[in-house]
Computed example of a mutant assay.
Amino acid sequence: MPAKVTLQDIADALGVSRNTVSKAINNTGVLAEATRQKVLEKAIEMGYKQFSYANSLGDIKNPSFGAKPSASGEIALFTGNFLNNSHFASTMLDKFQHEISLLGYSLTMHRVDQHNLENHSLPLSYRPENTKAIVCIEMFEHSYCEMLCDLGLPVLMIDAPVASYWKPLNADVLLMDNFSNIYTVVNDMSKKGITKIGFVGQVTHCRSFYERFIAFREAMYINNLSFEEKYCLTEIHPHGQDYREYLYKALKNSSELPELFICANDFVALDLIYGLKRLGIECPRDIKIFGFDDSPESKIMTPSLSTSHIHSQVIGYSAANLVISRIEQPDLNYRITYTETDLIYRESTQIL
């Protein structure tokens, strides 16, 4: 059996960089049309798998097959939670499913329960024979994710276990920008005299929560503000149904509260506001609060919540691009991709 043709093989044959070949084949970046044509012609000549149907450059530019290709396999979505509790999952998955369907792939969904996690077993609904890739959402058990990465299939993590920082997974990782807006908020608030700032949320819950905490600490340092452990309510309890009550008890037992809390996400902020109200502390009169994710609740709650808006459709599109490119080019280096977020100021950080 002849060896599989790689991007590097094409680059070596033409005497160009691998990056140039990737741009030409994927039609990304700035590239002279003559160079792109030369690369595509060489790819066809060498039998590169993405163009196995083509006999000439004209077959690529004017393909004879129909607009909608026949199904070419399933992409399996693994999740640790019911996605109807995730504010961005529905919009993101709609976009993801639309993009992969254009290329002939279908989406199957599988919930990973506690039994699966403990026994490193696959959900009963999963069908490996026709699965081309796995996408993980709300999957934060590192050893289980390692097991999935050993199945020999492309894996995309949308967010990831915090342990993936020091024990990298053989997978692509997709995250939103967890840093920029927190830097800006700390800087803006410090200019208004708000210098006692804390963080709320389980830092080890997932990679995004950890990055948001790191962003908070770095922002305090950059702005010459003192980081105080007493203002941080981090590892008080795992996130879940009981978290609100544990957070209230932590607030009640705090010797001093900050002027501003930065929260790991909007739902932590909701639980925080609930606990503060039970103690007779009002936001934003007595304390300011900043969330993350821009959930639907953040717009209609009282007070409305300052937060970071994540672009669900962009995440869906990016996820599809990462998965398909990994299926088509399994020899690519593993990638960590960040999507843009927007800072939104609302009532919860107003200076009264």
Rank of each mutant, 00 (worst) to 15 (best):
N116E: 08
T91P: 04
L117C: 04
D94S: 15
F78R: 00
P123N: 03
N84Q: 06
E74C: 06
T91Q: 13
G73I: 03
L107M: 14
H115D: 11
T79C: 09
L122K: 04
P69G: 07
V112P: 03
A89F: 02
L83C: 07
S72P: 01
P123D: 09
N85W: 14
F78E: 00
S70T: 09
I75N: 00
H98P: 04
S106Q: 15
Q114G: 05
T108M: 11
N85A: 11
V112G: 07
L93Q: 02
Q114Y: 12
P123A: 05
T79V: 06
L83P: 00
D94G: 13
F78W: 05
I75W: 00
G80H: 01
L93S: 01
P69I: 15
H110F: 02
G80A: 06
S101C: 04
Y126T: 02
Y105G: 04
T79Y: 02
L122V: 03
N84V: 04
Q114E: 10
G104P: 12
P128K: 12
N119F: 06
A89I: 03
P69E: 07
T79G: 03
A71Y: 12
N81R: 09
S72R: 15
T79P: 00
E99P: 12
L77C: 06
N116H: 04
I100Q: 05
F88R: 08
L122P: 03
G73E: 06
G80Q: 01
S121M: 09
H115C: 13
N116Q: 08
A71M: 10
N116T: 03
L102K: 15
S106K: 14
Y126K: 00
R127D: 11
K95N: 11
G73Q: 12
S72M: 08
L117M: 06
K95P: 00
D113H: 04
L124P: 10
F82C: 01
T79Q: 00
F82D: 05
N116P: 02
L107Y: 10
L83K: 06
H120K: 12
F88L: 09
F88P: 00
T108W: 06
L83H: 02
L103H: 09
T91S: 12
N81H: 11
D94Q: 15
H110Q: 00
A76P: 01
R111T: 06
M109S: 08
H110D: 01
L103T: 07
H87F: 10
N116I: 03
M92Q: 10
G104V: 15
D94E: 14
N84K: 08
L102D: 12
T79L: 05
